[in-house]
Structure formats: C-alpha cells, structure tokens
C-alpha cells in the first residue's frame, strides 16, 4: 500500500516562521513550535523546518526551536538550512530532528552527503534540490534561485543517490511562490530517474495541486507552506481532498478525541 505524505514546510527566520515569494518580502507567520503542534493535530505526516537565516549566530536559535518542538510533537521532523558539516547535523539530530536536509552545502561539497550518510545512516539524509528549467532541460540553482550551480538536474540526482541521499526534496524555483501548481514534468523526471522517495515542493495554490503531485508527478510526499500557514486550508482538508481523489492517506490520529 502506497500512502503519500503531506508535509507542511516551516521557513524559519530568527526563530519565527515566515512566508514570502521567492524568499523576498518575508511576512511573519507565527511561532514555529505552535504551528508545528497545530499541524500535528491536523494530521501532518511529517514536518520540515528550513532555517532561512542560517548564519552561524542563528544556529542556536534553530536548535532551541527543534528542541521545543521535539518535546511535544512525535512525528518525523526534518531540519535544514545552513547544514554544512557532520557536526552541524549532529547538533540538530541531538536536539530532536530525525533527518537533516542539505542543499547548497552539498552542491559546494558533494562529499558532505556521503559523510552524513556514513555517520547517521542514509534515512537521515535529505538532499534538497532547487531546480530551474533551462534551454537544455533542468538545472540546479542555489541561493534562493539566484545562482546557477552549473549542474544538470538528472546528473545531480544520480550523484546524490549514489553518495547516500535517503530522500530528495525537490523544489521548482520557476513555480515557487506562484501558486500555479507543482512543475509536474520536473517531478516526473525526478521520480523516473531515481528510486529514492521524492518530496514535491514549489507552487501549490490549490488542493488539486497536491493530488496532481502524486498522481501525475509520481511524488511520494507533497510539501506546501503558505496555503497552510495562511489557514487557507488545513492539513485535514488537504488530506480529505486527496482521499476523495482516490489516494490512500493517513487520517489525523486525534479525530474524535
């Protein structure tokens, strides 16, 4: 039985959840621990925290947020943003994270993926990839989409799979913040290139988009941020829409309590 996961993503800046379009114009969306609790109650299958400040001064802020979350929320928690070393990952895992996500640090030094997999097991290692459509297929970008990494997406997927990635968080930087839906071609390309679980990210505006990510895109999990933070849709509403579309989903365990 295949059960797609619904994952709210919390972009954390200076200890607060923010939302913004293409990482610009950040608006405050609340306290990460409180939001994490709310999403757990609504039936979120996992949580992703991305530290978008990610300067060394702020690491301790994120560690505290993870610690407080892990004391009350017992679903898988992935934390990323600024993880550059095994030690960075260790401090987050010690605080209660279950997986760490690496993005530009892996682009800069692919060996980091292998080091993390060796130290913590590959199920702990999420490689986040920001992809952008180019003239010859998809390329990898970093720095919020501003900087081309000079890597072809397919090659990069194969490289990180070989190095020890356990899961791929794939964001379309063309769609991110547009609410136009996931880039389904991008998802299809990734899910047919590698066997690893793929989390779809970037562009969700409606609940149908979540369904498409799984049915057409082949994603194993669907991630969204602003539609949930704005309370436009609750997680349980998203899951009801997916169930109505014929997908098997996990209901909120708190229902009826």
């Amino acid at each position: 039985m295949r059960v797609p996961r619904v994952i709210p993503c919390l972009d954390v800046h200076d200890g607060r959840v923010v939302k913004g379009v293409n990482f610009l114009d950040l608006l405050d969306a609340g306290d990460p621990v409180e939001l994490a609790r709310r999403y757990d109650l609504e039936g979120a299958d996992e949580l992703v925290f991305l530290d978008i400040t990610a300067t060394s001064d702020d690491r301790s802020t994120m560690v505290r947020v993870v610690e407080m979350t892990a004391e009350t929320v017992f679903i898988p928690l992935t934390v990323g943003g600024g993880v550059r070393s095994v030690e960075d990952a260790r401090s987050l895992l010690r605080a209660g994270a279950d997986k760490v996500s690496v993005n530009s640090a892996a682009v800069a030094r692919p060996g980091l993926v292998a080091e993390l997999a060796e130290e913590f097991g590959r199920q702990c290692v999420v490689v986040a990839i920001d992809a952008k459509r180019g003239d010859d297929g998809y390329g990898v970008v970093t720095h919020g989409g501003r900087r081309p990494a000079g890597l072809d997406l397919v090659e990069w997927l194969e490289t990180v799979a070989k190095l020890g990635a356990g899961e791929i968080l794939l964001t379309s930087m063309d769609r991110d913040g547009t609410r136009a839906g996931y880039d389904l071609q991008l998802l299809q390309l990734a899910t047919t290139t590698i066997d690893l679980p793929v989390i779809a990210s970037g562009g969700v505006g409606t609940l149908d988009h979540l369904v498409e990510g799984v049915t057409t895109g082949g994603a194993d999990a669907v991630l969204a941020a602003s539609i949930f933070h704005s309370s436009e849709f609750r997680i349980d509403e998203a899951k009801a829409a997916m169930r109505d579309a014929g997908l098997t989903i996990r209901p909120s365990p708190y229902r009826g309590q």
């Binding site: 892990a70 004391e71 009350t72 017992f74 895992l93 010690r94 605080a95 209660g96 994270a97 279950d98 913590f120 097991g121 702990c124």
Partner: peptide
Amino acid sequence: GIGNLRSAQKAFEAV
C-alpha cells in the same frame, strides 16, 4: 553510537 537516539528517549519521557 548508531543514529539518532534522542527521539526514543524523548518519547519515553513524554509518557
């Protein structure tokens, strides 16, 4: 020395 053991400890503390 294997993996993330904090989660298991925290869960037992929670109960």
